[in-house]
């Protein structure tokens, strides 16, 4: 009995403390007006607008969208999912970078150790790899969706061009990542791929040399692909993505129904 009373008291005290914390000026200072986390948030049209406007992540979106855009069957969320997969790949990729050295003697050992002796290492590597395949797929399907809706027509022509660049960058990101495990699959897939690039008319050998950092796949190629994969290509793709999303907003939002 006494125990129960004490527990009740503790519970009340915790609730009181939480309430006091939510009233504090510190908590108030964290959130911008209209945040659902603020005390006294009410569901009003004004606050619904504030939720989007006053959040650094959400304000990528307009405050209001056409009703048909909410229907999942219209876009299937493919563009958004491509972006989400990119974020997922960034997070898992950063995790993998902690355990990976991009040198010919060490790379394979590191990947093997990652799969066997790092907590969640195998899961994160699998997520990274299957997520990458997913992303190639979603980007491609997103392009097809945009084509079938005729959503590249004026004023969205240039955003389509940016989109094609994004598809190319996605493929390059996936391809450069392919080499990093430094196993037979990686080595020979990249050999086949770079051989194709070598058939470029006139300066084929130069293209191949620049890609490989030599005349064949070596440790130099591994380092080159690693830097391209973790730094250069993500840097470029983020810039193109920013322009892409900005143009979606500026060119009249999501396209209309047929």
């Amino acid at each position: 009995m006494a125990n129960g009373l004490a527990r009740l008291k503790v519970k009340e005290r915790v609730e009181e403390a939480a309430d006091a914390f939510r009233r504090s000026s510190f908590w108030e200072s964290i959130f911008r007006p209209g945040s659902p986390f603020k005390r006294g948030y009410s569901d009003s049209p004004r606050n619904r607008s504030y939720v989007i406007m006053n959040n650094v992540l959400y304000h990528l979106h307009p405050v209001k969208v056409k009703r048909h855009a909410v229907r999942l069957s219209y876009t299937l969320c493919l563009g958004g999912l491509s972006f989400f997969l990119f974020i997922l790949l960034t997070i898992t990729g950063i995790f993998l970078m902690f355990y990976y050295r991009p040198t010919a003697p060490a790379a394979y050992i590191d990947v093997e150790a990652l799969s066997t002796s790092v907590a969640f290492g195998s899961l994160v590597r699998n997520l990274h790899r299957w997520g990458a395949h997913f992303m190639v797929l979603t980007v491609f399907l997103h392009m097809s969706r945009v084509f079938y809706h005729g959503a590249y027509k004026p004023p969205r022509e240039f955003n389509w061009v940016i989109g094609v660049v994004l598809l190319l960058l996605t493929l390059l990101l996936s391809f450069t990542g392919y080499l990093l495990p430094w196993d037979q699959l990686a080595l020979w897939a990249v050999t086949v791929g770079t051989n194709m690039a070598g058939f470029t008319p006139m300066f084929g050998n130069q293209v191949k040399f620049a890609l490989l950092g030599g005349i064949e796949v070596t440790g130099n190629t591994l380092l080159r692909f690693y830097v391209l994969h973790v730094l250069f290509l993500p840097f470029v793709i983020v810039i193109f993505m920013a322009v892409h999303f900005w143009r979606v907003r500026k060119d009249g939002g999501i396209s209309g129904p047929l």
Partner: peptide
């Protein structure tokens, strides 16, 4: 015809 992004979209 528009709806609020939050919460619908």
């Amino acid at each position: 015809d528009k709806v609020n992004t939050w919460p619908h979209l």
